[in-house]
Amino acid sequence: MKILVGYKRVVDYNVRIQVKPDGTGVVTDGVKLSANPFDDIALEEALRLREKGVATEVIVVAIGPADLTAHLRNGLAMGANRAIHVVTAEAVQPLTAARVFLKLIEKEQPGLVILGKQAIDDDANQTGQMLAALWDRPQATFASQVEIADGKAKVTREVDAGLEVIEAELPAVITTDLRLNEPRFIKLPDIMKAKAKPIDTIEFGSLGVEAHDHLKTTHYAAPAKRSKGVMVKDAAELVAALKQKGLL
């Protein structure tokens, strides 16, 4: 079976983001961009399933501007067989992304779609669930363990109460949590090989997906700053300060 993997490009997780003073956005010019960390985990899981013989082909998918090619080459160097680039200059909200994935599913007929549980830029945590709803298939979100056998996925999910295990018939959508795996590093020879791998470019407009912007962002602000704290010299002083505040 084929596995489709969502592979979003985001501002690198180590970058301390700055809000523009006029409230129109965050500064992204000249800022380091990387694969969304959860998507690296999704790709790693797909590659492991291929190495186990469960999957035959792993396809990375990204939606975004023309310069995503280098980003997709990273996914190919990590081990994906090929890439699909849906080209649009506009920012895409989760429901639109889910509709794009549904079109690709109709074309590619994958047995499994693996996405990250959230992108670290919009922190929405929606696309996988929305895709599963539109596709009318099972979802297994926040996965920390995946076993596939007999056309079913047994997935351990990280939920607030602990670990929940569910069973989902394939095809299905899985979204990855941090502890699912440790993504591999890209090796130099693989970067060379990735140059020969195919990237299928599709114009967003040709998919017949209605861009869906029910949500308008009207303002960006920096979070409220906490007032400067004080350093205490020892345990007794700390306890006294907390008692004074009525916290102990």
């Binding site: 922190d123 996988g128 709803a133 999910r157 939920v159 029910h214 949500l215």
Partner: peptide
């Protein structure tokens, strides 16, 4: 916006054909 809500709400939003405001 707990793991329960994050799991189910976007699925509902997609069935209703609307966007979701998270968190």
């Amino acid at each position: 916006s707990t793991t329960f809500g994050k799991d189910v709400a976007p699925r509902v939003a997609a069935l209703l054909g609307v966007a979701q405001v998270s968190d």
